[in-house]
Structure formats: C-alpha cells, structure tokens
C-alpha cells in the first residue's frame, strides 16, 4: 500500500512538470494557432460582411447605371435627380464596401502577425486572403505586390500547394484586370493601362492553358472560366472608353482605387562579373 501511495504521489508530482513542459513546448504553437484561428474567424466574418457590402454596392452600381442611362435618354429633372441619387448611393455603398474590405485586410494582417513563422502553410492561405481583401478595398497595387510575392514563393516550391498557387495567380490576374480597368476609366493614357491589362491577359492565358492540360472535370471548368476571363481582358483592351463607361464593372471590383501606380519597373539586371576568377580552370599562361 505504501508503495502504491508513493507511486501515486510521485506521478502527481510529475504532472506539473509535464504541464510546464507542454506549456513552453507544443502548447505555445497550439496557443498561437488557437489565437490565429480566433483572429481568422473574425477576419472571415469581416470578409463575409465585406462581401455582403460589395454585393450591395454592385446592385447599387447596376441601378446607378440604369438610372444614368434613363437620364441620358430622357434627361428630365426626375431622371436626372434619380441618376444623381443612384450615383450617390452607389458611391456610398462602394465606400462602405471598401472600408469593410480594408478592415478585413487588416484583420488578416493580424492573423499573419500572430502566426509569424509558426505555420507557413497556413500563412500562405492567409496572405492570399489578405491580398484579395486589399485589392477589393481599392489598394490594388499593394494587393498585387503581395500576390506577386506569394505566387513567386508558391511556384518556387511546386509541391507545396498547387491549388493555392493557382488561386493566387487567378487573384493576381483579376487584380491586374481591375487595375487596368480603373486606370482606363480614370483617363490614364493607353501606355499606362495596357501594361496592366497585358499582365492580366498573360496570367489568364497561362491559367487557361494549364487547366486545359488537366483531365479532371474541375480543370475543365477552370479552363472555361479562365478562357472567359481572358476574353474579358481582350474586351477591355478593344473597347472604347465610352463603351467601357457604359458597362457594369466586375462584381467584386472596387469602384475607385489609387491610380498612383508604382513607376514602371525596369528589367531586372543581374550584377555582371567576370567569371574568370582565380582558381578557375582557365588556361594558365607561361611564367607559372
């Protein structure tokens, strides 16, 4: 009995040690993940809210287009006032949506900050979500920069997450499309917006070709979708500005964005150097 009792007390004494070990070991990771999960839940909620606002804005956008068309065709005071009101409502709703997306992006950033280096796999997905939210909030060029980095990293490790890599590229192509469209609508010259639309076209074409190589039904659907997006880009390039102004914007596109596109990046240049360093097996001249 005494032996059993001693064993029991002994085990009980080990428990705090185990707990402390867990706390400072795997417990930390679990805590971070738990905290990140909570933040992500909040971000997802915020995203849903933003999406709802975006949908609402889109409806207002359609209504505003219709109202403006009516006012154009029949410029009565009533129609004009309705058009003005619809435009105001549209802008207000887009502003709300943009604000919601901005909050979403910030929350995803909090998730990323919390996660740190704990879970690169999860972090990539969160980065995608954050970049997507940035694009829809109107920070198109920030979102594009994030997505370009993400695509580069994911494709450098092909085995990591192909669906995520594809999604990131799709989102990147979409961001370029939104950017090009907004640049064009804001009156930027063709040489500015064509650069962006060209990138969107390239990415959609690449995605469509990759999807066509797959043999699953999902791939086939992706191929059709990407093909359609590719055509939309071509339409953007070939439409006149007036045509474009009369068409509805894409559903998830921001209404306006920062048009201060970063300056055109020059071709990346590798530092050149003389390959014939000491010790390289070049011909050794006389005198050695």
């Amino acid at each position: 009995m005494i032996t059993l009792s001693r064993m029991a007390w002994g085990c009980w004494a080990v428990v705090p040690v185990a707990l402390v070990t867990y706390h400072y070991g795997p417990g930390q990771t679990a805590y971070v993940q738990d905290r990140a999960a909570q933040l992500q839940n909040a971000a997802v909620h915020s995203q849903a809210s933003a999406q709802t606002a975006q949908d609402g804005a889109y409806e207002k956008h359609l209504a505003a287009i219709e109202a403006r068309r009516s006012a154009f065709l029949d410029p009565t005071a009533e129609h004009t006032a309705a058009a003005t009101a619809a435009t105001t409502a549209e802008q207000t709703m887009y502003a709300t949506a943009a604000s919601e997306w901005k909050v979403t992006a910030e929350r995803y950033q909090e998730v990323l900050t919390t996660l740190g280096d704990a879970s690169p796999q999860d972090a990539s997905a969160v980065r995608w979500s954050k970049a997507r939210a940035s694009v829809r909030a109107g920070d198109i060029w920030t979102g594009i920069d994030d997505l370009e980095l993400l695509v580069d990293e994911l494709e450098a490790e092909p085995a990591v997450d192909q669906p995520l890599a594809r999604a990131a590229r799709e989102e990147l192509a979409t961001a370029y499309y939104y950017g090009a469209r907004l640049l064009r609508l804001s009156g930027m010259p063709a040489q500015e917006w064509r650069v962006e639309s060209g990138k969107a076209r390239q990415h959609f074409r690449y995605l469509a070709e990759q999807a066509k190589r797959g043999d699953s039904a999902e791939s086939a659907a992706d191929a059709i979708n990407d093909q359609r997006n590719l055509e939309l880009v071509l339409n953007l390039e070939q439409s006149t500005l007036v045509d474009l102004q009369g068409k509805a914007m894409p559903k998830d596109s921001p209404c306006s964005g920062s048009c201060n596109r970063p300056a055109k990046k020059p071709g990346k240049k590798k530092p050149s150097g003389d390959a014939r360093g000491a010790g390289v097996a070049a011909e050794i001249p006389d005198g050695w």
Partner: peptide, 13 residues
Amino acid sequence: LESSFGEHFEVES
C-alpha cells in the same frame, strides 16, 4: 535595352 524588358524578365547580361 535593360530598361525595355519590364519586370517579368531578368536581364543577365
């Protein structure tokens, strides 16, 4: 030439 290739090319030399 170096400035012509845009951001999707790396000009090695």
